[in-house]
Design a binder for these strands. Structure first.
Lengths: 221, 221
DNA sequence: TAGATTGTTAATCGATTAACAATC
DNA sequence: TAGATTGTTAATCGATTAACAATC
C-alpha cells in the first residue's frame, strides 16, 4: 500500500558498480567516504551518487559522509546479493561451460543446480560437478525443483519452446546470451547479454576514434 | 573540417539491434519496411527509428519507407561490419575458450590472431586453431602484428601491466570481461561486459517482480 | 560550536515522442 | 494525382547537475 517511487533503470544499472567500488574500499580498509571522494574514484558526479543512494534511503550522515561497511551491506541487500537464487543453465556449449565454471556467480548467490542440452554425448556428463540432463527432461526437473533463473546459452534460434517450458514452470528471470530478443510479457524479467552487439559497438567506437585522429592530422599528440 | 553532429551513445547502442532485425527481414524475404511496421516488430516508437536513422543520412523515401537490403548495408557500413579488425585474446580460461570458439565474431569481421596466457601448460597449445603464446611475448608479437582490439578475459585484478603493454603497442580497443573499470584515457575505447553486474541487475529485477506480485495479493491474475 | 557533508529542491541538459510540412 | 510515409522541427519527458538549507 506504501507509495513507493519507481526506481529508474539508469539508477539500477549503476548499483553493481557502487557495490564493486565499496567492496574495493573495504579491502583497502577505508571506513568512511564522502560522496565527493567516491565521485573522484568512480568518475561520476557527487550529486549523482547522493541522488542515487537517496532513492533507497538516507544512508549517509551530514558532516561525516557514508560508512563504507554499512553502505556496502545496504547495497548488497538492495541488489539481493544476500539472498540465493536457484538457476538452471540451458546449453552446454563453450559459453555454457564458461558460466558453469565461473565461481563468482555462486559467491553472489546464484546456484546452478542443473544443466540441460540436446546433445546425447553431453547428457550424463558433469561440468564443474553439475550434471548435464537431456533438454526433454527439463519440464519434469523444474516441476520438482522450483527455479528462479534460467541461463540461456543455446546457439540456434529455436528457443520459443524452451522459453515456453521455462516460463510455464514459474521461472521468473532469464539471462539471455542468444542474439534473439525475447518478448515474454510482464511475468518474466529478461536480461540480455548480446555479446555480438557489444563487440559491434566497440568496432564502431574504434572506427570513430580513428576518424577523429585522422581529422586532427598526424602532427598532433 | 566538416561539422559532424556528435552521435549519442544511446543511438549507437541501438544500431546492432537494427542490424539484427534488418538481417532477419532479409531472411524473411521482405524487401521494404516502413518505420511504423519496424516499430511494431522492435517494440520501439516509429519516431525514434526515423530520428535514429536520420543521424546518419536520409535512407528512406517518402510514401515508400525503407529498402530493407540497402538499409541493412548502410547500417553494416556505419557499424564497420564490412571492415576487418585484428584481435588478440588475453586469457585462455573458460571464457577465453568460449570467445575463441565463437565463429560469429569472425563472420562480423573480428579475427582473433593470437591468444596469450601465463599458464605454462597452456602455452603452445591451440584453441580453435589459434595458437596460445606466453603473455611475456605479447609486446613483441604486437610489434610485428599491428592489432586493433584486445579481448581481456583474465580472471585476476593485476591487469594494469597488461593494459599498459597493449596500449603502448597501439591497440585502440579493449573488450573488457574483467570486473575492473579500466581508465585508459582518450586514446583507447573500452567496452565493458561485466557479466556479474548483469546478473546482479537480473537478481534485483526478479526480486522487484516478486515484490510487486506479492503486493497485489495471490488472488489477482 | 564551526566545518563538513548530506538530503533534497530547483535548474539544466539530453533523449524521446509528437506533429506536420515536404515529397515520393 | 492522392495516399503514404519520410525528414525534421517543436513539445514533452526524464535524467543529470547545481545549489543550498538542514544537520551531524
Amino acid at each position: 500500500m506504501s507509495m513507493e517511487k519507481r526506481i529508474s533503470m539508469a539508477v539500477i544499472r549503476r548499483l553493481p558498480r557502487y557495490f564493486r567500488y565499496l567492496s574495493d574500499l573495504i579491502r583497502l580498509d577505508i571506513q568512511r567516504i564522502s560522496s565527493k571522494e567516491l565521485s573522484e574514484r568512480m568518475d561520476i558526479t557527487a550529486s549523482q551518487i547522493r541522488q542515487d543512494l537517496n532513492c533507497f534511503g538516507g544512508f549517509g550522515q551530514q558532516g561525516y559522509g557514508y560508512n563504507v561497511q554499512s553502505l556496502n551491506e545496504e547495497i548488497a541487500h538492495i541488489l539481493g546479493v544476500d539472498r540465493r537464487f536457484a538457476c538452471i543453465l540451458i546449453g552446454a556449449g563453450n559459453m555454457g561451460k564458461a558460466l558453469a565454471n565461473y565461481e563468482n556467480f555462486r559467491r553472489r548467490g546464484f546456484d546452478i543446480t542443473a544443466i540441460f542440452d540436446i546433445a546425447e554425448d553431453k547428457v550424463g556428463t558433469q561440468i564443474n560437478g553439475i550434471k548435464v540432463h537431456h533438454i526433454d527432461t527439463m519440464a519434469k526437473y523444474l516441476h520438482r525443483h522450483p527455479t528462479d533463473i534460467a541461463m540461456l546459452t543455446v546457439p540456434n534460434r529455436t528457443i520459443s519452446d524452451i522459453t515456453d517450458t521455462v516460463v510455464k514452470a514459474g521461472v521468473l528471470g532469464i539471462w539471455n546470451f542468444t542474439p534473439t530478443d525475447l518478448r515474454l510479457g510482464d511475468n518474466v524479467v529478461v536480461e540480455n547479454v548480446h555479446l555480438s552487439d557489444s563487440l559491434m559497438v566497440l568496432g564502431y567506437r574504434l572506427n570513430e576514434l580513428r576518424r577523429n585522429r585522422e581529422a586532427q592530422g598526424p602532427g598532433s599528440v
